[in-house]
Write a protein that binds this DNA or RNA. Structure first.
Lengths: 339, 339
DNA sequence: TTATATTTTGCATTCGAAGTCATTATTAAG
DNA sequence: CTTAATAATGACTTCGAATGCAAAATATAA
């Protein structure tokens, strides 16, 4: 039957005894077609197995129906979930996700080259480092961008962010109320803007409480690096009473290292806080005190803003920030009174 | 400068003083162009900021340079990592990933409709339920498919799979050597083929050891469901000595439930095994004995096979199966000798 | 030098749907 | 039953790159 040839609108037109334009109109909404033709066309389309060719449509309409999502895999456990939510929301709005993985192999420039050629309707970039120069390229190519958890100075691009400051201040407040004095900050990888920000905010929050010169260790957001970092620190220092970690996974690493190799109980001897609100923080062995990013709202807003910018590119960039919600776990307690 | 109009090959041709064909040829490899024209064209292309329009190219060449990845989010913690690897491998081969999320909202048929219209070069379906009917549709549309961890009867589609049988038999072997007699099987969601398969294999492996009538509880692959299922079972039965779980996350749930609410120690009172090899199995509090899926090899093969099928569609479908690797954790021990 | 082979080049067409515009069919109003 | 207004239709063009083909330019051989 289907002799190796794709069925086109012309084929349908011929069989249905109408013009190609008529077929085209039937498959667009809000176009005037009589019920009679519509019926005829739909019937033969069904019979022949006709499906409009999205590529041809893209070429003429200049809308690809695709949104590029730039994804920085290394960063964080919650981003797969973010990706899934974004995809869901975009599908609902009839946009497909074209995925780009920003890793060591593929630099941002490579990805951008592809994005231009694919004529995507818009871009959502998750926690990727964008400077004003990159943003300008998007402006030139007239492709709207929304940054997820990443701001660029000068508000030249829209972004949706979790309010790291509020979250971290809240966590530090709790620790401070428990009279902790002896802190360690466990930061994320230096190339990550989010990591950078969280680390600085932790230091700032502590400074606000009059606590300065807080030691910092670095990890890469992974469990193993959390353990390693804490182990490193303990090799040459006495134990802190509180560790502020830049994400949950490292915090869990710290807890395990403390319990297994340092003979420290959590929270009796050591208080630990994280950030993100990954699923594992609820697991019984950890019950981490942390802040959960409102990814439902953030992803929804990212998509809404992007679609708005696609519809009205002249609209100004907007920034939306959400507070995270505190998860009161079981990893924070009164400072151990030693020394 | 860039007056709102995309630069086309015609623009470049005009400025460079050559024909559009010449410009086109410069941007394809293996086409005869003199060095002189190539240089001229590249220079003006660069000057004007010309980038070939991938959409127009797709239309004429009938290669979209995109592979659809169908992703069933619910299933499993390791799939985000699988997705990331697939994306990486496909990028290396110059194919982009067009992402489709199979969830309750979007049925397979919806997704397939989109896939036809987008003219993707091929499809990789992760643990999604495909029957022969769906496969035939792909045949009709002449789009190669590779199934990931899912086989269809009759070898009509290529697939790459983890050898669940070998893995589960190995785990059961270990439990059996520890003289366990009192088993519980914790199965995954009924709509998942992988879950179904793992459950049946566990029963089969146990039957091979002469152990029949093993009770089954059902979860949805999540931590919470693992806890719930074990709690349900314990409400009306005496404790088993071994639990065979259909994935790691549920296994971790079982461990926590056993420890927290049932007063059972793992592995002294209760042995637990999982499947997949997610990162968390190495966490100190769990150290789950499980089998790790060889996702590196599997994703590589999936991409290789797909590209082969794209290049030579007449090639027969192939099936490749890998054994998982045993992770000797600390959640299996001798059967408690009670009763 | 001429005849022949080879490489470059441009013209014209193609991919498949959508949009413009003029024409025809239909409906509503007078 | 006209006339005006509206709806439906088809012929033709467009989007932007790729490609078959023939003509032109160049290289090779005799």
């Amino acid at each position: 039957m289907n002799k190796n040839k794709r069925v086109t609108s012309y084929d349908v037109a011929k069989v249905a005894g109408v013009s190609q334009s008529a077929v085209s109109r039937v498959f667009q909404k809000g176009r005037s077609v009589s019920d009679k033709t519509r019926e005829k066309v739909l019937a033969t389309a069904d019979e022949l197995g006709y499906k409009p060719n999205a590529i041809a449509r893209m070429l003429i309409t200049k809308h690809s129906g695709m949104v590029a999502v730039i994804f920085y895999y290394r960063v964080n456990l919650i981003y797969p979930e973010v990706l899934s939510l974004l995809n869901k929301r975009l599908s609902e709005k009839n946009e497909r996700v074209l995925l780009f993985n920003l890793d060591d192999a593929a630099g941002l420039d490579d990805i951008l080259e592809h994005i231009w050629t694919f004529q995507v309707d818009g871009v959502i970039a998750i926690a990727a480092h964008f400077d004003n120069e990159s943003i300008n390229k998007f402006k030139q190519h007239q492709i709207p961008v929304v940054l997820y958890n990443r701001r660029v100075a000068g508000h030249s691009a829209s972004s949706v962010c979790c309010n790291h400051e509020q979250g971290i201040f809240e966590l530090v407040e709790i620790l401070h109320n428990f009279k902790h004095k002896n802190y360690l900050v466990l930061a994320g990888p230096e190339e990550s803007d989010v990591a950078q920000e969280r680390c600085e905010l932790a230091l700032k929050a502590l400074a606000n409480k009059g606590i300065n010169n807080v030691p910092i260790e670095y990890g890469d957001f992974s469990y193993a690096s959390g353990r390693q970092a804490f182990s490193n620190y303990m090799a040459s220092h006495s134990a802190p009473t509180a560790v502020v970690c830049s994400n949950d996974t490292m915090a869990i690493g710290v807890i395990d290292e403390a319990r297994e190799n340092c003979g420290l109980r959590v929270p009796e001897d050591l208080s630990v806080v994280g950030f993100d609100g990954v699923n594992a923080v609820f697991w019984h062995s950890y019950q981490l005190t942390t802040v959960k990013q409102p990814i439902e709202q953030m992803t929804k807003a990212a998509v809404d803003i992007l679609l708005e910018q696609i519809a009205s590119p002249e609209n100004p960039a907007q920034l939306r920030v959400w507070s995270g919600s505190l998860i009161q776990g079981n990893t924070v307690g009164p400072a151990r009174n030693e020394q």
